[in-house]
Design a protein around this nucleic acid. Structure first.
Length: 577
RNA sequence: CGGGGCGUGGCUCAGCUUGGUAGAGCGUUGCGUUCGGGACGCAAAGGUCGGAGGUUCAAAUCCUCUCGCCCCGACCA
């Protein structure tokens, strides 16, 4: 391929709207061009990257016997009503919807559980036909509340989604493990540093779920991990050993104290110097949204710990929770914000507590009266016993749940997610097969996604320097470029052409930079574009000498023309490690 | 959706406070000189100042509305 024939337009300056390195560099190097908020055009070089990554995905999934199919982007409302998700997705505003000429509601597929389940259940009638695993690589559409970071969170994006169908739980476990193995091979192959973490299964639902995280400071997810034990979890899901707190001692009589304007745990610690946060219990009022109603609930947590809202949603099986407004709090507790507590709390309000409070004596809490707090509160004695759940947000520095070694925190970009869905969708949609016992049985499903446009962006996030992108060899748009520097020097042009042909013949994915630019401009351009191996044919061409640049580390070495093919191949092999 | 900010040649931005002939750098085109770190000279093209309405003798500039985009919080590959 000749670069003079490839549409390639690099920018001298950083685009104004790019915040993180991958967005900035992909836009500046001309790989992506914004068409609308969260909607990008993939320029030729970017499309080559995406295709190469998609090919790795295909190869590894096909090795596990998965079938590639193509599902429709435009999907009818009825299909989404059959799983009960139309209402939810429309209410959340996450789905692009449209009407056809007859006025029928359609949507642009944000995900494909429904279509795939519908398709497979029509094809598979018997347990004898399973296991089945189908996947597609396709554009998906989500009207994200806040698209950002270029390809990281777009409204139109490319995703691989696979769905496994099994007759029973054991089959699902096998399918899940096969996909997990395939995912590991995929991310190993494309040269990103990733971690598999335990995850919350979120809106898609289901039992077990793990996320594949590319570690990067700009990642939108926080993960906690322990190198020794191998434990790793999304902070939404993570648990840890409970940090210790001073014992409350024997139950003491309840006391009520005036605490004007003392509202936060920190203020209480200052106000009651002998009461540390670990002996307090804060009571947070939430508004919980359920399918049929909204409820105000009270959630207690030890004063030195935080509430994990994802765990809270799961514990009460809500669609969503959010902090209650000051008005709602006053209505619910009769006191201003900052004085809520279990003592005297209306029976109408659900009271939950984190397990860290179970059995603890003599707590300091609010008492639902503005300007007062209670000392020596004993749950069950001075207030009703709450429902105890694990509602605690695990934090870095706390002990690994197994070994007790301190957990570390990192940011990650979620590039893959695998779920054991179970029968959630097949039951809702009535998708069944005939089981061995002669009864119609819902499919046992798994679903598996990879962000196909996001992963290369995550790779750039990990592999760049101050000059530009440093593509990992397996997903680089080309493995190597040969560039002459002075178009007027015939020997340069000829030698470059020759090396280009030699490298092609040797099976190297190489391009020839035959653009008419000054040498300095070419150097800068290639530092930015970031092809792994760069061969510059310059002033020593007449002596059969060229320069070899390894983009990673920018090591430049002189090299005789005869050695180029061997050295490039060696460097590529090293780059694939 | 809440809070903040920005819309001026292809890109990055100045001009707006204090209304009075639309600017710079980069990029693009032509000619010439260069040819190892985004070269130089000369010449040139290119802008409904996001849009609509209003105030005014006069609006990029002031007011109202609207659309788009970006950033901070709740969703997710």
């Amino acid at each position: 391929m000749r670069l003079s024939q490839i549409l390639i337009q690099t920018l001298r300056e950083d685009p104004a709207d790019a915040e993180i390195p991958s967005h900035r560099l992909l836009a500046r190097a001309g790989f992506i061009v914004k068409t609308a908020a969260g909607v990008y055009t993939y320029a030729p070089l970017m499309w080559r990257v995406v295709k190469k990554f998609a090919q790795i995905v295909r190869e590894e999934l096909d090795r596990e016997g998965a079938n590639e199919v193509m599902l429709p982007i435009i999907q009818p409302r009825e299909l989404w009503e059959s799983s009960g998700r139309w209402e939810r997705y429309v209410t959340d505003g996450i789905m692009f919807t449209l009407k056809d000429r007859k006025g029928s509601d359609m949507c642009l597929g944000p995900t494909h559980e429904e279509v795939m389940t519908d398709f497979v259940s029509a094809q598979v009638n018997s347990y004898k036909q399973m296991p089945v695993n189908c996947y597609q690589i396709q554009d998906k559409f989500r009207d994200e509340i806040r698209p950002r970071f270029g390809l990281m969170r777009g409204r139109e994006f490319i995703m691989m989604d696979a769905y496994s169908f099994d007759a029973d739980k054991q089959g699902l476990d096998v399918a899940y493990q096969k996909m997990r193995d395939a995912y590991c091979r995929i991310f190993d192959r494309c040269g990103v540093d990733y971690t598999v973490v335990q995850a919350d299964s979120g809106a898609i639902g289901g039992a077990g779920s793990e996320e594949f995280m590319v570690i990067a400071d700009s990642g939108e997810d926080a993960i906690l991990f322990c190198r020794e034990s191998g434990y790793a979890a999304n902070v939404e899901k993570a648990s840890s050993r409970l940090p210790s707190a001073p014992d409350g001692g024997e139950p003491q009589p309840l006391e009520k104290h005036e605490t004007p304007d003392v509202k936060t745990v920190a203020q209480l610690e200052a106000f009651f110097p002998e009461w540390v946060a670990g002996r307090m219990a804060k009571t947070v009022i939430y508004k919980a949204t359920f399918a049929e109603e909204e409820k105000i609930i009270a959630v207690m947590q030890r004063g030195d710990l935080e509430i994990n809202e994802v765990k809270l949603v799961n514990a009460i099986d809500a669609l969503n929770v959010e902090l209650a407004s000051d008005e709602d709090i006053e209505k619910a507790t009769g006191a201003e914000t900052g004085f809520a507590g279990p003592v005297g709390l209306s029976e109408d309000i659900t009271l939950l507590a984190d397990k860290s409070l179970k059995g603890r004596a003599n707590l300091l809490t609010g008492c639902n009266e503005t300007g007062f707090h209670c000392l020596n509160v004993n749950l069950g004695r001075d207030a009703r016993e709450p429902d105890y759940h694990d509602l605690r947000l695990a934090r870095a520095g706390e002990g690994d749940p197994e070994t007790g070694a301190p957990l570390q925190e990192a940011r990650g970009v979620e590039v893959g997610h695998i779920f054991k869905l179970g029968t959630k969708y097949s039951e809702a949609m009535g998708a069944t097969f005939m089981a061995q016992n002669g009864k119609p049985t819902p499919f046992m499903m798994g679903c598996y996604g990879i962000g196909v446009s996001r992963t290369p962006a995550a790779a750039v996030e990990q592999h760049h320097d101050e000059k530009g992108i440093v593509w990992p060899v397996p997903i680089a748009p080309f493995e190597c470029v040969v560039a002459f520097l002075d178009k007027k020097r015939k020997e340069q042009v000829e030698l470059a052409e020759q090396l280009y042909e030699d490298l092609r013949a040797a099976g190297v994915e190489v391009c020839l930079d035959d653009r008419q630019m000054s040498p300095g401009a070419k150097f800068k351009d290639h530092e930015l574009i970031g092809l792994p191996i760069q061969v510059f044919v310059g002033r020593n061409a007449a002596d059969g000498k060229v320069e070899l640049l390894i983009r990673k580390g920018l090591q430049k070495t002189d090299c005789s023309a005869e050695e180029v093919v061997a050295k490039v191949c060696d460097a590529l092999a090293a780059g694939r490690q």
